[in-house]
Amino acid sequence: MAMKQPLAQLLISVTKKYLSIFSQQTGGLDIDRYQYVLVLINLHKEQLTQKALSELLEVDKSFMVNIVDYLSSKGYVVREKNINDRRQQVIKLTDKAREAIPKIEKVISRLNKQSMENLSEEKIQIFSEVLLQISHNLAEVEPKNITINYKNR
């Protein structure tokens, strides 16, 4: 059975709900977005450059600069010269970020569990595989960079 509505509409709707709840549940932090970037930096042992981070998140390098600037202005990250390549800057976490990461990870875990409630392990596995296949199917298309800006109201 073919879908009548664009797949993007469903994905955007779910994303907006997820991010809204995520933002509410991480409300004790003084950042209202980009919390997951801190988790990614931590997962990669603080060895990511802005370029590597932008590639991981599939965002434009100039947008990544804005993200890092925002997190830096809030005291969560600092840029340091890469000791292996002085032309690059590695993004490092501050103590403030290290304190926030466990809370962010708990929210992610809790929200993922809530999102997948009443789904069997098999359905969750199929869902993951379908999303990966959709991404793979679209990988050959040269996308235009777009920015989806979710504003808190």
Score class of each variant (00 low, 15 high):
Q114L: 11
E80Q: 13
Y34P: 08
L38Y: 05
V37G: 07
N118L: 09
E129G: 08
K113H: 09
L57F: 04
I104P: 02
N42T: 06
V65S: 14
L111C: 07
T15H: 05
E46G: 01
E105N: 01
L119D: 02
I31G: 06
R98P: 01
N84C: 00
S62D: 11
S120M: 05
V14L: 04
T147S: 13
G27A: 13
T26R: 09
G28K: 15
I31H: 07
V37H: 05
T94H: 04
Q89H: 13
N137K: 11
Q24E: 15
N152I: 07
A2W: 02
I104Q: 03
V59I: 15
N145P: 07
L56S: 01
G75H: 01
F22R: 13
V78R: 10
D60M: 09
E142C: 04
E55Y: 09
S135G: 14
S128K: 04
P102H: 00
T94I: 10
T15D: 01
L56E: 10
R87A: 14
Q9K: 05
I12F: 01
Q89M: 12
Q50S: 13
H44I: 05
S73W: 00
G27E: 13
I126E: 11
L132K: 15
V141N: 07
L7P: 02
L131V: 08
Y34T: 06
L43R: 15
I101M: 04
E142A: 08
L10E: 02
Q50M: 11
V59P: 00
Q125N: 12
D60H: 15
G75D: 01
T26M: 08
I91G: 07
A139Q: 14
N152G: 11
V141L: 15
Y76H: 09
S13T: 08
T94P: 04
R153N: 12
Q114G: 05
L29Q: 03
D85C: 11
L119A: 06
K51H: 12
K144Y: 02
V68H: 05
T26G: 09
P143H: 09
L7I: 14
Y150K: 07
E117H: 11
